[in-house]
């Protein structure tokens, strides 16, 4: 029997995987994909809760989030591409001129 609680647990797991991925991956694109994974975990939670509460808000929010995520991709890729062109490296660890 799959209950909404299972879906929420899955959402939490996806969220944590995304968060840990941000920490452990060096490639900027992959880091960003991990953030996207976190957003989608939230989407899953929204849809599940919409089902639990029996209203449509959560599903509509999920659509909004997708649009926002798409916009974020546009901006993010622009930034990451320009930094890749300048440095010939997509590693987030290479960009640490500013510190302390």
């Amino acid at each position: 029997m799959v209950t909404p609680a299972h879906f929420i647990a899955l959402a939490v797991i996806l969220f944590v995987i995304g968060a840990v991925g941000v920490l452990v991956r060096r490639n900027a694109i992959v880091v960003f994909m991990c953030v996207e994974l976190m957003l989608n975990a939230a989407n899953l939670a929204f849809v599940t809760f919409a089902r639990m509460h029996g209203n449509l808000d959560g599903q509509i929010i999920a659509f909004f989030v997708m649009v926002v995520a798409a916009a974020e991709v546009v901006v993010g890729l622009a930034i990451l591409t320009s930094i890749f062109r300048a440095r010939r490296s997509a590693s987030v660890d290479d960009a640490n001129l500013m510190k302390y």
């Binding site: 968060a19 941000v22 920490l23 452990v24 060096r26 880091v31 987030v92 660890d93 960009a95 640490n96 001129l97 500013m98 510190k99 302390y100």
Partner: peptide, 17 residues
């Protein structure tokens, strides 16, 4: 303390997490 601000974005993410 300023050493914590080590310039690595992943380290910042860790502190946030």
């Amino acid at each position: 303390m300023r050493r914590v601000e080590n310039g690595f974005v992943r380290s910042y993410a860790l502190s946030m997490l």
